[in-house]
């Protein structure tokens, strides 16, 4: 049968920063073609296509929580593949090679992670699963 694409609405203006991205204005409606785990979604709008940050999009037909995994409070060990300094207060500063526990894999590519007693957001794109057991 035909492929039904999900429709989303932009919640704010987003100006693209590379050729493969798509700029959107608040209230624009896009169709999502592919959702990458790192939080970039490939969208089409009219005759244009490109990647849009998922956090700028909300579903037209109510929340899409069904797609989101439940939090895993035990945590899943991951290793940071790059240094990252948090830009917002709720983000963690982590150095390359440090181990963290991933508690919640959010669809927007910003995962809730724990290091010691501190919890905050960290970009999924800079994490890879550790082979170690918890």
């Amino acid at each position: 049968g035909p492929i039904i694409l999900q429709s989303y609405r932009a919640i704010a203006d987003y100006e693209k920063s590379s050729k493969t991205e798509l700029s959107v204005k608040a209230e624009d409606e896009v169709e999502v073609v592919e959702k990458d785990e790192n939080g970039w979604w490939f969208c089409q709008m009219k005759n244009k296509r490109g990647w849009v940050p998922a956090a700028y999009l909300e579903p037209l037909d109510g929340p899409d929580e069904s797609e989101e995994q439940d939090p895993d409070y035990a945590g899943e060990l991951h290793i940071a593949t790059k240094d990252y300094s948090g830009e917002l207060q709720d983000e963690l500063d982590i150095k390359k090679g440090e181990t963290v526990e991933v508690i919640h894999k959010l669809l927007d590519g910003w995962w809730v992670v724990r290091r010691g007693s501190v919890t905050g957001y960290f970009p999924a794109t800079y994490l890879k699963k550790s082979g170690e057991a918890v």
């Binding site: 987003y14 990252y84 959010l106 800079y126």
Partner: peptide, 22 residues
Amino acid sequence: TIKRPPENPPPRPPPEVRRKQA
């Protein structure tokens, strides 16, 4: 064909417009 997504983390919208996380 769909090109690979950008390698940098996707930007987060300003807190005042950010949708509520579950």
